[in-house]
Simulated scan of single mutants.
Amino acid sequence: MTSLSETLIENRYRVQPNHANNYESLHGGMLMKWMDEVGAMAAMRLAGESCVTAGVTELDFQQPVPIGEIARIEAYAYDTGRTSVRVRIRAWVEDPRTGEASLTTEASFTFVAIDAEGSPVEVPDLTVETDEERERRTAARDAER
């Protein structure tokens, strides 16, 4: 079995002009794409299979990410179904010079594990063992409400 901590993935992207909207900040669709990619990696860590996006819940944009800043994205699995994995995904705007960061976006994604033919396959159970893992799971579940 895989622990919640083993599914934790974090990635950073420097926002370039080709990622921007008319307001010189990261286009929301680009951020969603990056969140989907990082979330899928977290789901695959748990499933041990390829995973595809099945749904998105509560995608909330709280502030923009300007050109030249960094979009830091964190994802981890927090629940499973028979063939599905629930992943909490959060993004921060991060100053590349200081590392100062503030939360910009939160969401929960559902991924389905698939085999080589594209058919859904069962996923293993997720283990939650440490206090930090329990806190992360609780925060993810609370964010859905």
Rank of each mutant, 00 (worst) to 15 (best):
D79P: 05
T98G: 11
Y78N: 01
T57G: 11
S50I: 06
V56Y: 09
R88N: 05
T83W: 05
A91Y: 02
A71S: 02
P96R: 05
E49W: 15
G55M: 12
V52S: 06
G48F: 00
D95F: 09
G99S: 00
T83K: 08
A75Q: 03
E69I: 05
V65K: 09
G55P: 13
E69P: 01
C51G: 11
P66T: 10
G55F: 11
E49R: 15
T57E: 15
G48L: 02
R90N: 03
I73C: 00
P66W: 14
E49L: 12
R97L: 11
W92Y: 06
A47V: 08
R72C: 05
G68D: 12
Q62K: 15
F61E: 01
L46N: 14
S84R: 03
V52P: 08
Y76H: 06
E94G: 08
R86D: 04
V85K: 00
R72D: 01
E94D: 10
A91L: 04
P66Y: 14
V56R: 12
V87D: 00
I89P: 06
L59K: 00
P64Q: 06
A75P: 04
G68C: 07
E100W: 12
T53Q: 09
I67M: 11
I70F: 12
T98M: 09
A54H: 10
V85G: 03
Q62T: 12
T80G: 03
T98Q: 08
V87A: 03
A47T: 10
A47P: 06
I70R: 07
L59F: 00
T57L: 14
Q62R: 15
A77G: 08
E94S: 04
V56E: 05
G68L: 09
R82C: 10
W92A: 03
V52F: 11
R97D: 14
R97C: 06
R88E: 13
A75R: 02
R90S: 04
T83F: 10
R97H: 13
R86I: 05
P96V: 00
D60L: 14
G55S: 15
A77N: 06
R82T: 14
V65T: 08
L46E: 15
F61I: 11
E100V: 14
V93K: 01
A91W: 05
S50K: 11
I67C: 13
A101L: 05
A47H: 04
T98K: 09
D95A: 02
D95R: 00
D60Q: 14
Q63G: 13
A47Y: 10
D95S: 06
